[in-house]
């Protein structure tokens, strides 16, 4: 194998050109290139080491742990698929999967369109645009724990802000987190508030790339805002929309902070999610094998989801 393989990349033409040059280059130049590449690699090594040690190695260890029973002190025992059997037999698994899907579904319906609508609206503002951008992004800057605890106080059925305000107009009081029917929705509302700032800014940046002539032409033809959005904005932003949709799905299917801090999975397990179950296996039961097995199953499900998603949207995203 020649040293040129290092440069192989997706752009075939560029590689061919490099190969051509390299084949006819004097040996001294080839050695110099090799040395340069090795120097680059040497500078890359610390990053590779950190990434490998702190990201990839734990992943490999997690895979290993899912087939072991261990107290992390004595030598681990290989237990085959027993950890997988245990988590699949857990009566709480079905509840956790159902709740996680419900959270992801509600977040998709409520949380996904909101940043896009906000971005479109904000892109039309001529004055105080910076202030609005700041206000929308402010929740992202708050530590997640602070945001969650703040909303927990807002949701208090006796003394909370929401019931007090709604009470002024004759509504409520609502149980929010106290009811199995509204607890998950309450978590989604907080999560949407906390996360929409980032997506809004990404959409705003993407909107600057949409040629203004398209809107001017549409306006001339009498298209109203919804038609302009449907026929110009969405097609122009489809790459961004698809990417953010995938990121949202992966993120919401791994929801943890909200149920952990706000409800601890209650009431009556109505907000127990898959990640909360993994947390309980690891840190309440001390069963790292079961926690790793469940994590592996979740990772496999998310990988499959991503693959299916990318395959099913490949035509739209590239057209």
């Amino acid at each position: 194998m020649s040293s040129l393989d290092v440069r192989t990349g997706p752009r075939g033409g560029a590689v061919r050109k490099t190969e051509t040059v390299a084949h006819h280059a004097p040996p001294r130049n080839a050695r110099r290139r090799l040395r340069n590449d090795l120097v680059a690699l040497a500078f890359l090594l610390p990053a590779l080491f950190c990434f490998g040690y702190f990201a990839w190695w734990p992943l490999v260890r997690g895979l290993e742990l899912s087939f072991q029973q261990t107290n992390l002190v004595d030598p681990a025992q290989w237990v085959g698929l027993s950890n997988f059997q245990h988590v699949l037999d857990d009566p709480m698994l079905a509840t956790a999967v159902k709740n996680t899907l419900l959270f992801a579904g509600l977040a998709l319906v409520i949380g996904f369109p909101l940043p896009l609508l906000l971005a479109v609206q904000m892109s039309t503002l001529r004055r105080l645009a910076g202030l609005y951008r700041y206000l929308v992004y402010l929740p992202v800057m708050l530590p997640p724990v602070v945001g969650v605890l703040l909303w927990q106080m807002f949701y208090d059925p006796d003394h909370g802000l929401f019931n007090k305000v709604l009470g002024l107009v004759g509504l409520g009081p609502y149980p929010w987190l106290q009811s199995t029917h509204s607890a998950m929705l309450s978590l989604v509302l907080e999560s949407t508030w906390a996360g929409m700032g980032s997506a809004t800014l990404i959409y705003l940046a993407a909107l600057t790339r949409v040629p203004p002539e398209l809107y001017e032409a549409a306006e001339t033809d009498g298209a109203r805002i919804w038609r302009r959005m449907w026929h110009i904005t969405l097609p122009q932003l489809r790459g961004t929309v698809l990417l953010l949709l995938l990121m949202q799905l992966i993120g919401t299917l791994q929801v943890f902070a909200e149920p952990y801090l706000m409800t601890d999975g209650g009431p009556e397990n109505a907000t127990v999610t898959v990640l909360l179950l993994i947390y309980r296996y690891a840190f309440i039961d001390g069963d790292y094998g079961a926690a790793s097995a469940m994590s592996l199953l979740l990772a496999a499900a998310l990988s499959l989801l991503s693959a299916v998603y990318l395959w099913s949207t490949r035509r739209w995203s590239s057209s």
Binding site: R35, N36, L38, V39, A42, F43, L45, P46, F49
Partner: peptide, 21 residues
Amino acid sequence: MHRSSFARAFGLVMACALVGS
């Protein structure tokens, strides 16, 4: 980059990795 520079860079990286380990 000269050979000596390369050697120094490589040595530094390996030393850091060793100290860390």
